[in-house]
Amino acid sequence: MGRFLAGRILATIPVLVVVATVVFLLLRLAPGDPAAILAGDAASPEQIAAIRARLGLDEPPLTQFLEWIGRLLRGDLGTSIISNQPVTKLIGERIEPTLALATTTILFAIAVAVPLGVVAAWRHGSWIDRAVMAFSVIGFSIPIFVLGYLLIFGFAMELRWLPVQGYTSIREGFLPFITRLVLPTLTLSVIYIALIARITRASVLETLGEDYVRTARAKGVGERSVLSRHALRNAAVPIVSVIGIGIALLISGVVVTESVFNLPGLGRLTVDAVLARDYPVIQGVTLLFAFLYVLINLGIDVAYTLLDPRIRY
């Protein structure tokens, strides 16, 4: 296991090198010029060229790449071309809302979806099963921004129970923190509840038909124990896989949710940086996301060994 972990952690290095190279090249091939953006609408081509030279953007791409990699190896992600702030500082400021939203969403989605999926499988063919399946279809189909606006209309504009927008750090108190996360979490979790509930239902349904479940029931084991210890435990591997995929997918979902609820997270930082062609920020955030993806996959693989003793690395 130790060798496996060490190997997987070492394997992140070539992954990050490939990601860094591809992102750098794609950005240089993409249209747009941060110098023109910095200079503003009334700038002349000469003024834009002067800014480009000062930023080093007129250097050959290979020179720029080597300079960036050199800084990266020293732990320096560079400085934002537009705001002149260190990229690490920008990411540090923005990571908390994104992590908070991702965590509450995944926890809420698991807490709701797994029981729903298990109950749907247990009562296969009943109205509960059909209701869960119908919810899954709707949850998959409804766009995140539509659901967000509907929840804002209901809970913020009509009932006035919750704020429309904004984020309060957990350092300023748990209640204000969680109050501002309720609507974004509900919005973002619906699609994950739909996804996880469907997989849980299918997986548990399959295990409920296994011989060992029939044996357990024949031995007089209670239904709760049959479902939790025998069916769900053995159905857990595909469920954990889909949760892992869900966490990875969250990053794209977060972009829309952060915009609708005005959360100052990494999603908005990424969109703003792309629109402004702020190369160092895009590169830094993409590397961070790639690193997180690798970590999530590693976490899932480790979870497999805990859930299924037959899996060994």
């Binding site: 606006y149 804002i152 913020a156 504009m157 006035r160 704020p163 429309v164 927008q165 904004g166 915009s259 609708v260 609820f261 005005n262 908005r268």
Partner: peptide, 18 residues
């Protein structure tokens, strides 16, 4: 100055007094 990129959200926030 708070940057709310979505104008629908900004207008809702104005109506709600945020």
């Amino acid at each position: 100055w708070i940057n709310i990129p979505d104008y629908q959200t900004a207008i809702n926030a104005l109506i709600n007094g945020e």
